[in-house]
Design a protein around this nucleic acid. Structure first.
Lengths: 275, 275
DNA sequence: CACCGTACTTTACGCTGTAAGGAGTGGCAA
DNA sequence: TTGCCACTCCTTACAGCGTAAAGTACGGTG
């Protein structure tokens, strides 16, 4: 078996992700208690925390090594003493914030209620840390909190008695739905902040232009017009939310109901042997 | 009503998106038939086509004005004669490739079959142009093909008789599911190409490290282990597909079934008055 | 006290989108 | 025919990015 590139970095990456509690600084495993030279003024934890703050406040695009360094009163290059590269820093950020999600859910009122609570928490989490949505889904980070959140979701659905391969598909669908729904809202907020133009004003400025360039819209795309014929019914949680967000909240609740009913049908089909 | 920034660009953007057939070059509306100065060596269409080619071949990250210019034998700045900025170019790319999607679907065998055909086509489309997944969802481009694809999807589901607000939610869920499922595969391919490490080798290099740093995985996260206990059943379309992609295909079919059953339940609830 | 490993800094490279200004082309009015 | 000038396309420039390379200053250990 030939070993490919990325192996050395994987070493560093794994020990950073799984490093134990951090008494003062550095990682517990590869750090001698005393060493020559100046004292360490930073720590991996401090750097990750600062990076999360930058990303939360200014978005993933503004997350630069220089920006993180500046927040800590250092240059960009100082960070490379603690973290091998920006990619590993993002992995650490990702696994750290995943720790905010609860590991347990109340199953006493059935899986539908528990899964809905999970969805609401996860949605709120994504909107609190919208940059998480830009972390690639392709290869898992394999950090402790990533495993913990997956375990928590699996625990909610395990009681349905669905066989493992089906459960994998259901978990994927559910996770993707919440992620996608949050993405739309996060993108909209990002756009509003980046351009300084809110959704409502944006639409008011586009609408007459569309009318001019495509006056026959209603004839060419009758169903698009029909679908948007009326405002969404009020949604309890989002009375004060701006334009697009109220719409997004409505779509979220409708789509979520569809998904839950679909899971119910799947349980009926594949035999839920437990309650 | 105060008009905000972005208005002037919106003008240009709209006339580029909705410009009629392109006899030789330039846009039909704001281009006089003859003009002083050197002949135009490029055209908006040629630039958009070249940009799509670059993005298809090298990914969104490699799409630079210099790269597009080079493919056309010009410098980056030459493009600015035809296109106001990179943002508008991406809008044009997006609306152009959306034109590849079919506008009609065979409804003779019911909405389930038609919607499934739609999903397969859309998934294949995303994998053909993975960069499309990185175009922001927040604010629609309002181009002709964007309307056309939405109309096509609405037409498939209109026959269910679902009321408009519910249909909006269903359309959103369906579109998000396909987009998310394609995203995972696209990200994986991108990662494999960028790092030169395939999924299988990647896992083989990570697995022993994980074992070393977290030897109690099975005890801490029993359901994560249980869920992945066995290989996914073979899926017809993806026998030759690599590792992760076969898994992704399985999840896609399972999740899709869940979604279809959920829509069925929604029709039963909200009264499908048509067939 | 000298040594030398360490924390951190400065400098540098090639990349990005695009503003600014310059060069050469060619239709049209004088 | 000449000169104008709108036009296409070019070169140059700037501030920003991740990070390699080299330099500086600190301080525990021989």
């Amino acid at each position: 078996m030939v070993l490919y590139a990325g192996q050395g970095d994987a070493q560093r990456s794994m020990s950073l992700l799984w490093r134990g509690p951090d008494p003062a600084s550095g990682s517990a495993s590869d750090r001698r208690p005393s060493r020559p030279g100046p004292k360490q003024g930073l720590s991996v934890d401090a750097i990750v925390e600062a990076a999360v703050a930058v990303a939360d406040e200014q978005g993933m695009a503004a997350l630069s090594m220089r920006a993180v360094g500046q927040r800590l009163g250092r240059t960009a290059m100082a960070l490379y003493t603690y973290v091998p590269s920006k990619a590993e820093l993002i992995d650490l950020m990702y696994d750290k914030v995943l720790g905010e999600l609860p590991a347990e859910h109340d199953l006493s009122r059935g899986w539908r209620a528990a899964l809905t609570a999970w969805a609401r928490e996860t949605r709120a989490f994504y909107l609190r840390h919208p940059w998480v949505l830009q972390v690639s889904q392709a290869r898992p980070v394999l950090g402790p909190n990533e495993f913990a959140t997956l375990e928590a979701l699996a625990r909610v659905l395990h009681g349905t008695g669905l066989p493992a391969p089906v459960l994998r598909g259901v978990i994927g669908a559910v996770a993707q739905f919440v992620r996608g729904a949050a993405q739309v809202v996060a993108d909209a907020r990002q756009a509003a902040r980046a351009t300084g133009v809110g959704d409502e004003e944006w639409w008011f400025s586009r609408s007459p232009l569309l009318e001019r360039h495509a006056p026959d819209l209603a004839r060419r795309f009758p169903l698009v017009v029909w679908i948007n014929q009326d405002d969404p019914p009020a949604v309890p949680d989002a009375d004060d939310a701006p334009y697009l967000e109220r719409d997004a909240m409505h779509n979220f609740t409708v789509g979520w109901e569809v998904l839950l009913d679909g899971i119910e049908a799947s349980i009926a089909k594949h035999g839920g042997d437990q309650r």
